[in-house]
Amino acid sequence: MGKRGQMTEDRIYHTPQHPVPPFEFNAAVVNVFEDMIHRSVPMYAEIIRQQARMIQLGYHPGTRIYDLGCSTGNLALALCAGMPAGSFEMVAVDSSKPMLDAFARRLAGWPHRRQIVLRHGDIRNVEMANASVVAVNFTLQFIPPTDRDQLVQQIHDALVPGGMLLFSEKTTHADPRFADLQTDFYYRFKRENGYSDLEISQKREALENVLIPETLHDHHARLNRCGFTAVDVWLKWFNFCAWICIK
């Protein structure tokens, strides 16, 4: 495979596949994940950078940070770069073992490694408590919609008063005119980042019924049902959004 800087280039959908298998976070995806996420998610680096800063402001000593759907550890490593070793405690959870293995390799050189606990499992089954911050980045969209209320309620209940939920999602729009516009600009973004129409089409097919986006209204209604007292979209790029929610 080719290289983009220090990242292995994402060429998973470069050649025709018949049929296109459902998307999963397997070893092949993990191998190209850094290239894939930066070329496929607008403003991803900015989301991680600013979330790390918000966590530094919102974290209370003696509490925990949970990163649900932590992937290869980008948020944790951003925290390590900005907070002294021993100054926070994080539990990072992912259902993909290859993701966690990559996370562990990246974390090995940091003095913070003993304060970050990696857990392999379904985030719906994680016992959480005494959390000042919970981060969920581009993960809720992969959870069955019928289970999302319960997960967000668990997060809310695990947060200390004033605790923060930071999450990011790909969204959709109830008005088809805006939905079409958002999709058009998103595919332009991917083409500008070097993906071909074949790659875009096959990735879309792979994610069908795997990634199920919701509208802003859907998300806000759930957050209100689950008891969050303050909700703000601090970043929006067409159909990609990042929230800060306070208990």
Results as ranks from 00 to 15, higher is better:
Y13D: 04
V233A: 14
H156Y: 13
K247W: 03
A158L: 07
F240H: 10
R53F: 04
D218R: 02
G86E: 12
E205C: 01
R113G: 06
R113H: 11
L198D: 00
M54V: 01
A81V: 01
V210P: 00
A242H: 14
T229N: 10
T171K: 04
I47W: 10
T8G: 05
F33L: 11
A108D: 13
I55T: 07
R119E: 12
D149I: 02
R64E: 06
L198W: 06
M43I: 08
L165Y: 08
G5C: 05
P19T: 15
T8W: 09
V152W: 02
L198F: 07
W234A: 09
M83V: 11
F88R: 07
R177C: 05
N26P: 11
T139Q: 02
S87C: 09
M54S: 04
T139C: 14
G62L: 09
S71F: 09
R204K: 03
D175A: 08
V20M: 11
R177H: 09
M128V: 04
L151E: 06
V133E: 03
N74H: 11
H219M: 09
F167E: 03
A102I: 04
C70V: 12
P84W: 00
V29H: 13
I37G: 01
Q56L: 09
P161V: 05
K236Q: 15
A230D: 15
V233E: 14
R148A: 08
Y186G: 05
T183S: 08
